[in-house]
Amino acid sequence: MKNLDRIYVDFHVIQTVPPSCINRDDTGSPKTALYGGVRRARVSSQSWKRAMRKMFCEDFDEKNLGIRTKRLIEFVQGEIQGISSKISSEEAKNLASKIVKIAMEPPKNRKKKKNEEIKALFFISKVQAYNLADYILKHQGDDKIDTKEVKELIKNGNSIDIALFGRMAADDPNLNADASAQVAHSISTHRVDNEYDYFTAIDDLAPKDNPGADMIGVVEYNSSTMYRYATVAVHNLARELGGEKEVAAAAVGEFAKAFIQSMPTGKQNTFANRTLPDAVLVTIRRDQPINLVGAFEEPVRTVEGGYVKPSIQRLEKYAEQVYNQYADAPEKAWAIGMDGQAESVNLNGLLQGLQNALIHDMENVAKE
């Protein structure tokens, strides 16, 4: 059943990843997961979101992006000195410390530790940091500062990446920001076995009569064809961005570009694993987001010919099955490298079509 006030965009990607170790666990091994009774290659959600955020920096003005840092006082201090060049560094630091402690002060029903400073990474936008700096400069002579007013400065003015990926403040849930995007852990569509690359290194200045290696080691790696999935609740994103439809549509477009084109950088110099997707399916839905990973619960098996083609076929067949049995078909769908009922486009066509459709749909939501 359609929810006319909701708009979801689902992203499904089939992508080959050559021999690599782009996302490692605490032992240095490539991350894996058991699914469908067999071991799969895995790249964590956090790893790919990090790669996406780095790509955002290439396409967005920095004022539209957030900073995730424990050095919040230094960040606000820089904004204070940017507003008032006459203020000394020490005074700016004192003011920054004062306003940050007020902003981050836990509610009265939570215990406050003595001399507590920022101990965890905090996601804050450039606009929010500027607003804190501007506020404390205007109220630096006040005996008492309104805590509620200060906290509102952090709750409003979210950057695009905060609106997409959310923010959690453990000490004060009121400072949380709901994530409009969800990114699944990517897994291989088939079984994988990790392999080992034994390497040696020679000292360039070693004596000629010393034929031995000066360093030896092992790098664990695997290769796979992966299924990647993400979804964006566009209605929530627009709300987090102040209701501006064009800004929200552009943000989804950049999210789409980054999700499709980005690649985590782990061991990239060693393996040069910069691949692009083999197939992409993007849909607009009104009922609910749908992860189609169930297409690969039974692992794809092949004797020869690779995993890409059977993985694409499996995805198309499973999507049709889900739409027939459980959910409405998407309102709109675009595909790269796939057949089926979706409109076949290239990446530029997908991004343009998606943004135009979202602006149109959000205008209709406002009317309804």
Rank of each mutant, 00 (worst) to 15 (best):
E240Y: 02
A329S: 12
W334P: 10
Q352T: 15
Y307H: 06
N346S: 08
N346Y: 08
L281Y: 09
V252M: 09
G306K: 10
V252F: 11
F259S: 14
Q341F: 06
N291K: 09
V280D: 02
N273T: 13
K317E: 14
L358H: 05
R285W: 01
D287L: 09
G353F: 02
Q321G: 02
M338I: 11
R314W: 07
Q352C: 09
Y326M: 11
L347Y: 06
L281C: 01
A335L: 07
G253C: 05
A279N: 05
G266S: 10
Q341D: 13
E298L: 06
Q352S: 14
D339V: 03
A258K: 13
V280H: 02
A335H: 09
L347T: 01
M362T: 08
T265L: 14
E331V: 13
P299K: 08
I359P: 04
K245E: 11
P277T: 11
F271M: 01
P299Q: 08
A248Y: 03
A238Q: 00
G305P: 12
I336L: 10
Y318C: 08
P277F: 15
A272V: 11
A258G: 14
G305V: 08
K309Q: 08
N324I: 03
P264D: 10
G294P: 05
Q268T: 11
P289S: 15
G243M: 09
N324P: 07
A342E: 01
D339E: 13
S344G: 04
A342F: 01
L351N: 07
N324M: 09
E244F: 10
K245V: 15
N236V: 06
E244V: 15
R274A: 03
E343V: 04
G253A: 03
T275C: 07
D287E: 15
Q341M: 04
R239M: 07
Q313W: 05
S262N: 14
L292S: 11
W334F: 13
G294Y: 00
K332G: 03
A256D: 00
A272T: 10
M263N: 13
L354G: 04
Q352L: 11
L347I: 09
G337V: 12
Q355G: 08
V282R: 05
A333S: 15
P277C: 11
A333G: 11
K257D: 11
N324H: 12
G305F: 15
A342R: 00
G253Y: 05
V280A: 02
L281T: 05
A329G: 08
V365S: 07
Q325K: 14
G243N: 09
I312H: 10
P277N: 13
H360F: 15
Q321C: 04
K245N: 10
Q321E: 09
K257G: 05
A238S: 02
T265F: 03
Q288P: 01
A256H: 04
L281G: 02
T283E: 06
G349S: 08
L347Q: 06
A335F: 11
N356C: 06
P330H: 08
I290L: 14
R314G: 04
T302Q: 13
L237D: 02
L358G: 00
N273D: 12
A256G: 04
S262D: 14
V247R: 14
K332H: 01
